[in-house]
Design a protein around this nucleic acid. Sequence first.
RNA 1: CGGGGCGUAGCGCAGACUGGUAGCGCGCUUGCUUGGGGUGCAAGAGGUCGGGGGUUCAAAUCCCCCCGCCCCGACCA
Length: 510
Amino acid sequence: MAKNIKTRAEDYSQWYLDVIKAAQLADYAPVRGCMVIRPEGFALWEAIQRDLDRRFKETGHVNAYFPLLIPMNFLAKEAQHVEGFAMECAVVTHHRLEKDDKGGLKAAGELEEPFVIRPTSETVIGHMYAQWIQSYRDLPVLINQWCNVMRWELRTRLFLRTAEFLWQEGHTAHETHDEAQEETLRMLDVYANFAEEFLALPVVKGRKTESEKFPGADATYAIEGLMQDGKALQAGTSHNLGQNFAKAFDIKFLGRDNKQQHAWTTSWGVSTRLIGALIMAHSDDDGLVLPPKVAPVVLAIVPIFKTDEDRAKVSAFIDKAVAALVGEEEVAAAAKRKQGDLASYFFDKATGQRIVVDWRDNRPGDKQFHWEQRGVPFRMEVGPRDVDSGNVVMKRRFDRAKEAVEAGKLTPAHLRTELADVQRLMFEKALAFRNASTHFVTSYDEMKAKLETGGFVRCFFHHGKEAEAKIKEETKATVRCIPFDAQDKRGKCVYSGKDDAPEVIFAVAY
RNA sequence: CGGGGCGUAGCGCAGACUGGUAGCGCGCUUGCUUGGGGUGCAAGAGGUCGGGGGUUCAAAUCCCCCCGCCCCGACCA
């Protein structure tokens, strides 16, 4: 039992924070609502970036960078957009500091027009697109940027909702409505595939209702995941912005028909919130559990020895095992860059994933907890007994399975197969949980009862601002989406009793 | 912004009511010991007691003002 982590049953919120702390993923920053992403946490973001960026490139997108500061008046140009974001913007009003009479500092140089720190970049990017797009020949524009944004949230939680967070935002411009719609759904698919294949997180794809959509969008689509406490988490969104931003920022081009017209734009994003999703979806009472594809360290080897003689014996055995896994060349390279008591070897150069041997002068139990809490998919114990028997003990983090493996079988192919198995099993486990936590209801009473226990509640519902607000008040649940997989099924609304309502998914969400 | 709570070592806290040498646990450093799931012992380092002012021979402690943080609510593509 981990003594520094509360159990999920005891206190789910505290468990979440304890897991983050124990795995050293993040820390609170000196500024309210902000976090420091520590190396162990940032490695997860890097893995996410690496894989997603490849998927963006494969769908024809390129990266660029737009500025952090946005003229305040830009935000006001799109009516719904300002409505949605104005309240949570941080504003820069001065451009320099000077000494005050108490030996401190005070803001000098007040700006004529304040800037906002970007809460999202539709406005500034729209402004630039207006200059770049003149003809249908300039379309489509398919740009993504990786950056930070700031939203002055009143209540924050590490990774899930922080005042500043890292994300990527794709912004595209197209010649026709249909093309923009196709792009919007294409990127939703990219997110869904990424979540399921890479994060082992099953998601539901669907459209947001009017009251839940992005301010300024014609339509918002999202992927929704289910966390272990039965709450839903929006894991990614893709917006069809229609011509709203094109009109607000004057993105016009001369079409094939020789007429001036507004472009059709989209935007889509995922954030460091995905790290929160990873933790909440897979981790257990012993700490972090990482899907192998995300794990910076795939195998941690814990040597066990008492005497110098044993140590030499164990060390020789481990050297051989590691060489079989990473190759002699990598062993030599690792020896050169080695610092401290952790030997670190690249198992996969393309992803930077490593194998570590923990030579620190701690007790073996300490080391087990150390790597366990960090979610490392496999741990291997090697002691004199193992050297003598020719077997090693492999421990699988995901389900604590323990297996004696013949040393000769420890090949890269074997480890890759094991990692792939865990990746698959983790997805299957999460999927089984989600399916077991999804209920179809036919009455409002039944819906309320199911929402009490958490999970996705599917039902026929005539969505609309008023009804949704009322239901949220009564149950805390919101319409997560109008799922694609319901196709065009129609039925009697659980709330109004009227016929011909579409199927939606309700859940209490983060 | 409304209601409640809290600021004392890196972290978690006691001390305050009743003013009198600033403490405990964890962590950290060093040494010995131990080593197959969080060993044990010993020695040691570490402090503007959130800030300013006041009362007093004397303030972490009493009084006044300010600042910050946390929880509940409002807010949250």
